[in-house]
Write a protein that binds this DNA or RNA. Structure first.
Lengths: 138, 138
DNA sequence: CTGGCTGCAAATCTTTTGCATCCTG
DNA sequence: CAGGATGCAAAAGATTTGCAGCCAG
């Protein structure tokens, strides 16, 4: 926790509650997930605070924003380089730490300077395969 | 054009205008881009029609929906399997047709049945590198 | 004490929906 | 001529913003 203060991230009770929720969380929660979980402890918690906090954390590279859903940002508190495996039925996202080194042949780079890559694997998770899909909106 | 009618896709003047706009377009346009371009010819064109048409095309696999931006869907009229290279400064997206075969070791699959993958390469395009970034909102 | 943080409400942006009308096949 | 498509306006969902009051450093 001290590390946050050191990098100029002011710790408030709300922020600590969010950090607690994110600690070790590998469910790639959305802003809504975070809001719902944390507002149980902080009934006055607002979305503005969730978004502010997540923006600040992303800026300090303490969290990664995922563009997996089109119109719902999700957050990954694990900032180690890794890829994702996404269930096409229930949208669950799990981490894949296998390393892949990918290169684009020069002829195909179109002048870009490559800085990195992200692999999204798609599949069907074990629950959905067995006919017990986790409920989601879509 | 005949091929659309054959697969049960009813052709209206608006739809033909959208298809014309998409033909050979490799700029991965958003609904807004499509709406703006096509409504010049069809002043009464509505977003509802753009979304309806794109949904219908996606369902017939004539177009692919891209989740590159968080809350702005983009469309790719090129349905051949390929990956994308995205400029982190101006959000331009270019196609990469190099083939990569990626596999997740069994131990890391967590019971998933893998169906596919998508690679997003990140980089800085030649214009942004040279200090002439294409204007975007963000 | 001061600048950054909070929380409410209102605004914004993208996408969806309801529905009466229109027109392709 | 029937069923799907259109287009308007309103609704919905996610995120952002304005701003007054609060509190960590």
């Amino acid at each position: 926790m001290e590390k946050y203060r050191k990098i100029g991230f002011k710790l408030t009770p709300q922020r600590i509650a969010i950090l607690d929720y994110l600690e070790g969380n590998n469910e790639h929660p959305s802003a809504e997930d975070i809001y719902k979980a944390v507002s149980e402890r902080f009934p006055t918690m607002s979305y503005a605070t969730v978004y502010n906090t997540m923006d600040a954390l992303a800026e300090k590279k303490c969290v990664v924003e995922l563009n997996i859903d089109t119109h719902k940002k999700r957050f990954d508190p694990d900032v180690r380089p890794h890829n994702h495996l996404i269930c096409t039925k229930c949208s669950q996202v799990v981490d894949v730490f296998e390393k892949y080194s990918l290169d684009i042949p020069k002829e195909q780079r179109q002048g870009f300077e490559i800085t990195g890559n992200l692999i999204e694997f798609y599949g069907v998770c074990i629950k959905c395969k067995n006919g017990f899909p986790k409920k989601t909106k879509e």
